[in-house]
Computed example of a mutant assay.
Amino acid sequence: MKRSLAIAVFAALLLAGCAAPGRQATSNATGTGSAPEAAQQLRVAAAAERGGQLGMALSLYATLSEANPGDPEVAQRHGAALLQAGQPQRAREVLAEARRRNPANGALMQAEARALLELGQAAEALAMFDAHLQAAPGDARSLNGRGIALDLLGRHAEARMAYRAARQADPNSPLFTGNLALSLMLSGCADAAMAVLEASPRSAATSEWLGQMQGLARTLSPIGGADAETTALRRALPAAAEPCTAMS
């Protein structure tokens, strides 16, 4: 397995982590920021989305977007559903148009940056997260997004600083802990990743996801499995550039 493939595996995990337990999901919003009729339609679309009827939800969101051009909440919900449906380019277009009409809206900036990450445009996403952090320096979600972009760019030490800052801003979120652990694994420090995960508080909602991250770290550690696929993945990851104890 080539290093590029190993990075692709971890990139998928990092991006999937954005939907892990503890994330502030746009699809669970009540729609109170929009007009009453639009808010009711948003609730119907969100119910369809939660019920697994993504096609119906997308149709409702598209209708709402046409009727309410530039509405930030409609755009965020529509964009999130498009990302869930595997349509990041369309999501980016919807969010960029809404942000053009609402250039100071930080939530739209975060959502568009998330779409850029899905499109593989990590440098552009990083610039957008950084721009939002200038206005909201302690925003945990933007700090986390900044970390993901930096990891995808191979700047793992800077990424870990971003995840730690996100954890400091929101100590109860398992998402930032999981992404910090993944960043440590990308740096060749699976044992340090295990230590971070073991020290993380668990709840019924987060235990399974953090356990999966811990299982991956254990597999990649020197005492992990020895099957051909695991060995290839372990070899594809870099050796630690500094003592792992200094990273955790």
Rank of each mutant, 00 (worst) to 15 (best):
A217H: 10
F129E: 03
A165K: 05
A135Y: 00
Q214G: 12
A98T: 11
A125H: 05
G225V: 07
R218D: 08
L126S: 06
E73I: 15
A135L: 02
L119I: 12
N28C: 09
A228F: 03
A136C: 01
A123D: 11
D130R: 07
Y163N: 09
A192V: 09
A125R: 08
G22P: 15
E66G: 09
A149L: 05
T231I: 03
C244N: 00
Q121H: 13
G55P: 01
Y163C: 04
G224N: 07
I7Y: 00
A39F: 00
C189K: 08
L153M: 07
A11K: 05
M109S: 12
A80I: 02
L60S: 13
G211Y: 15
E229T: 07
L95G: 13
A98V: 12
R100T: 12
E97T: 14
E112T: 06
A205G: 13
A122L: 14
L133P: 09
M194A: 08
G22I: 11
A29M: 04
L60R: 13
M161P: 14
L133R: 03
T30A: 09
A62Y: 05
H132C: 00
A6H: 00
S187W: 15
P243K: 02
A25T: 15
E158P: 15
A39Y: 01
E97H: 12
Q87E: 05
A8H: 05
A190D: 06
P201Y: 14
A16N: 04
L152I: 01
F176C: 04
T177S: 12
R164L: 12
L15N: 03
E66N: 08
T177N: 06
L182H: 07
L184Y: 12
Q24S: 13
A127Y: 09
A190K: 07
N144D: 14
L210N: 03
A157N: 14
A226T: 14
N144A: 03
S207A: 15
L180E: 12
A122W: 15
A115C: 07
G17D: 09
A16K: 10
A205R: 12
E112R: 11
A91N: 05
V74T: 08
L150K: 15
A62H: 06
A125F: 15
P72D: 03
A193C: 02
A75T: 13
S65A: 11
A205D: 10
L13M: 00
R100C: 06
A98H: 11
P174D: 03
R114N: 05
E49Q: 11
Q41P: 10
L82Y: 00
Q53G: 06
Q53C: 03
N28D: 08
D139L: 01
I223A: 11
E118P: 05
P88A: 11
G31D: 09
E73S: 14
A67H: 03
L152V: 00
T230F: 03
A91Y: 00
